[in-house]
Structure formats: structure tokens, C-alpha cells
């Protein structure tokens, strides 16, 4: 029995992930469609770009929530992992891949739900069908983005377990979300250099998701149509590079995992 299957089942039935990954994000879609859309030019291109930008940003937030939720559960099983790597056939690589697979399954399901929500809410708001231009590309970009977020979350949790102590988990847990907000919103309004956008994984995710939904190349400033276009192969390369680095680092950190008591994480 593979580990990926029980992990996928556990994530799919996790109410907390569904709430913060879907329900809370749906709330943002409603805000985006009905509150923040004032002053938007009434053209098909403007509406498509606006919808795609919201989808890209919120999908990244959702994947962040999902990944941190899955990775944090490792803190309950540090002894099992320390034992498992020594005295069973479980390997750090196999475990890391199981987490990735679980995130991919949950990411796919969330992706479909998010796509449906975005298409539904924004189409209703603008009175025209704003469907994703390339659903297959959306799925591909979501998988790659999910792999990055899962790798990042795993590395962060393992740094806490192995080096910082569990009391710091509640602080570190928010880092990916804070970075997602920072970089996610920056590409919406700021003219960042192209090399930075290719190197920054959050912007790679946003650019790829934007292009997959809209069918048009992402631009350096997503809300400004005239800014320079970004090349999706470079975004894919940048993001894939980050995924490889994070999977490698997390595998090394997993191999050195320290057995800690979950009670070490108690704050009060």
C-alpha cells in the first residue's frame, strides 16, 4: 500500500483544508468580482485579464494554505519518520514524493473547484462567459505550482523541527502566505524587472496560471496591458528549478529528522 493514497484520502477529507482552501478563497472571488471591479474598462480583454489575474493570485493563496496544512501534519509523526527511515523500507525520497502526490491530488480537486467558482462568479458579474482558455494548461500550471508550494512547506516545517524548535511553527507557518501576498500582489501593480519575475517562484506561478486562464501571455504588470510580455517557457524553467531544489533539500532534511514531542509546540 503506497503512502500517497492514505495521505491523499486524509487531505481530501480534511475540513480545515476545504474551508481555508476553497470557502475562504470563494469569499475573495466575490470581493474581486463585485467590490474591487469598479472602474474596469468594459471590454472583453479587460474583463478576461482581470478575471485571470484574480484566478492566478487566489489559486496561489489556496495552494499555500493546502501545502502548509499537509506539511504541518509531519510534526505529529517525527518519531515515526525517524524510526521509519532507519528500520523500514520507507525512504526520505519516497516520503517526500508521497507528500507531493497527496498535494497533487488535492490540488487537482481544488483546481477544478476554483476554476468553476471563478468562471461562475466572474461570468455572472460581467454578464458574459469568462471560461479558462486552456484548461489543460491550468491543470499543468496548478500541478507545478502545487509541487513548489509543497516543497517549500516541507522544507520550512523540517527546518522548524530539526533546528528552530516546534514553538516557532506557528510563526513559520504564515511565511509562505505572507510571501504569496507580497509577491502575488506586487505583480498586479508594480513594474518588476523581467529577470526578477522569472527567478521569483511566486511570480512564475502567477504568470503561468494567468496565461493558462486568459490565453494571453502574462505581462510584467498584470493590470497594465501595455507592459512587456513574459515568456512562459522561462517561467516554467524557473519554477521547475525551484521545485527540484526544494525536493532535494527536503529529502536531505527528512533524512536528518529529529524526533520531537508535539507538546514542544504548545504556545501557552
Amino acid at each position: 500500500m503506497s503512502l500517497a493514497l492514505p495521505y491523499a484520502r486524509a487531505t481530501l477529507t480534511n475540513r480545515s483544508l476545504w474551508f481555508w482552501g476553497v470557502v475562504f478563497m470563494a469569499f475573495w472571488f466575490v470581493l474581486g468580482a463585485y467590490v474591487f471591479s469598479g472602474g474596469l474598462g468594459a471590454t472583453r480583454a479587460a474583463e478576461t485579464g482581470y478575471t485571470s489575474a484574480w484566478f492566478a493570485v487566489i489559486a496561489v493563496f489556496s495552494l499555500t494554505t493546502l501545502s502548509m496544512g499537509i506539511a504541518s501534519s509531519m510534526t505529529y509523526g517525527t518519531s515515526a519518520l525517524a524510526f521509519g527511515f532507519r528500520y523500514t523500507r520507507l525512504t526520505p525520497g519516497r516520503y517526500a514524493l508521497s507528500l507531493l502526490a497527496a498535494a497533487a491530488v488535492m490540488g487537482l480537486v481544488l483546481g477544478v473547484v476554483m476554476l468553476t467558482l471563478v468562471a461562475g462568479v466572474f461570468s455572472l458579474r460581467f454578464g458574459t462567459a469568462l471560461l479558462p482558455a486552456d484548461p489543460a494548461a491550468v491543470v499543468g500550471a496548478s500541478l507545478l505550482a502545487g509541487a513548489f508550494m509543497m516543497g517549500l512547506a516541507t522544507v520550512l516545517v523540517l527546518v522548524v523541527v530539526n533546528h528552530l524548535g516546534l514553538r516557532n511553527l506557528s510563526f513559520v507557518e504564515f511565511l509562505p502566505l505572507v510571501l504569496s501576498y507580497l509577491f502575488g500582489f506586487s505583480q498586479l501593480f508594480l513594474a518588476l524587472p523581467a529577470w526578477f519575475l522569472y527567478l521569483c517562484p511566486w511570480n512564475d506561478m502567477e504568470s503561468l496560471l494567468y496565461e493558462a486562464y486568459s490565453g494571453s501571455p502574462a505581462t510584467q504588470v498584470l493590470t497594465r496591458g501595455g507592459s512587456a510580455s513574459l515568456a512562459w517557457p522561462l517561467s516554467v524553467a524557473g519554477l521547475a528549478g525551484w521545485v527540484l531544489v526544494l525536493v532535494g533539500v527536503s529529502t536531505v532534511l527528512l533524512g536528518r529528522i529529529r524526533a520531537v514531542s508535539i507538546l514542544e509546540g504548545r504556545q501557552v
Partner: peptide, 8 residues
């Protein structure tokens, strides 16, 4: 604790 790989 070595059997707490996940809650099943």
C-alpha cells in the same frame, strides 16, 4: 509514537 506516521 513510531506507529503515528498518520492518523489511520
Amino acid at each position: 509514537e513510531v506507529y503515528r506516521l498518520m492518523t489511520i
